[in-house]
Structures are given as C-alpha cells and as structure tokens.
C-alpha cells in the first residue's frame, strides 16, 4: 500500500510564527520520537491545499521518499490465501481467501466480492460482500451486501441487509459496545445456553390440549 498524497502532513509550524508557507513534500522518518527539522524548500509537487493541523507524531521531512501508510486498511488481495489467526488493530480488507479466526475488535473488517472466508470474525464493524462461513460478532454494526453469502450467526447491535444477501443462520441483537468488555455489559450467553434458557422459560407456558 502506498501513501496517499493527501496523507503527507506538513511539518508542525506554530501558526503564529509562519502564517502560510509553501507546502513541501516531506518524507517521514521512522522514528518513535521525531525531532522537528527545518523543512528544506523544494519544488512543490501537486499537493492538496493547506492540510489540516498535523497530528502529534508528524514528522521531520525530506523529499521523494515513499512510506508505508499504517493508517489504511491492511488487505488480503484476490488470489491470496491465508490460514490462521488474525488479530490486531488495523482495519482489514479481504478479497482473497482466509481460514481460521479473525479478531480485530476495534477495527473494521470488509470482505470484498471475491473474498471467501471460513472463520469467525470479531470486529467493531463488519461489511460483507463475499462469502463467509463462520460467526460474525460486531461491536457496532454488520452490513450484508447484495452479493454476500453468509453461513453462521450474526451478533451485533445494528444490522444492514441489502436485497439479494443470503444468510443462513441466526441474527441476534446485542447492546452497542456489548462485546467490548465484560464490565460494561453482561456477556451474551453462547447460543446453546440461550436456547436452553429460553426453552425452559417457555416450556412452562405452553400447554397441550
């Protein structure tokens, strides 16, 4: 993944000292605690006008260096296969094949139209356009696109289903943020327990003629 041009941030300049200086292309040095370095004026490439205030880690600069954009989603492109457990904090786009388990509780997971996933997915937001065999658990929302095909249960506070989506499984609502931590809300019981509990509660109500 290549850094987008508009992701290049100007070096931090106190607004009071330099009102509007020509924006320069600045490479990012991979240092944890960067020291501000004076920008060297260079011919400005095509840049979007005046980027907003740079974040705290914005960096010292040089030119013509391409950096990896860690803020964008990681992707498993079409034609790639991956097997195992995926975890972390980056957003994820899968248009290839994945098997195993995907646990990105603070991120967005998108399964592209060519994506084929055999895995339970836990994420903040899940968007499906491809095929998934596994349970979906989202803290915020699940969206099933028109070409999606899901076999498994869906546990989420919000669900969006486009016409044409195929779902073979259960949909259950949770309160928003329920899966984030056990302290904030009660944890949903596993399906088998839910079945038994509800069955027991209703059994007494049903009566045979």
């Amino acid at each position: 993944m290549w850094r987008k041009q508009n992701d290049v941030k100007p070096s931090p300049q106190p607004a009071s000292k330099a009102p509007e200086q020509p924006v320069t292309a600045v490479p990012v040095k991979p240092q944890p605690a960067p020291t501000p370095v004076a920008a060297v004026p260079v011919p400005a490439p095509a840049m979007p006008p005046a980027a907003p205030a740079a974040p705290a880690f914005s960096a010292p600069v040089t030119k013509n260096v391409v950096t990896h954009d860690t803020s964008g989603p990681s992707s498993i492109a079409s034609g790639l296969k991956i097997r195992g457990e995926l975890s972390g904090s980056s957003d994820l786009y899968i248009d290839g094949e994945a098997q195993g388990k995907i646990a990105l509780p603070d991120s967005r997971v998108t399964i592209g139209p060519n994506g084929r996933v055999q895995a339970d997915i836990e994420a903040r937001e899940i968007i499906i356009e491809g095929t998934v065999e596994g349970n979906l658990k989202a803290r915020e929302s699940v969206r099933l696109g028109s070409s999606s095909k899901v076999q498994g249960s869906v546990l989420t506070p919000r669900i969006g289903i486009d016409d044409g989506a195929k779902l073979r499984g259960k949909v259950e609502m949770t309160r928003a943020g329920e899966s984030k931590g056990p302290a904030t809300a009660e944890k949903p019981a596993p399906p088998a327990v839910v079945y038994k509990a509800a069955a027991a509660s209703s059994e007494s109500e049903s009566s045979k003629r």
């Binding site: 073979r168 499984g169 949909v171 509800a198």
Partner: peptide, 10 residues
C-alpha cells in the same frame, strides 16, 4: 431471535 434459512434456495 430470528434465524433465516432459505430452504428453497438451498
């Protein structure tokens, strides 16, 4: 709790 299973499609 709703489950869906498009039996004819399957």
């Amino acid at each position: 709790r709703i489950s869906t299973d498009d039996l004819l499609g399957t």
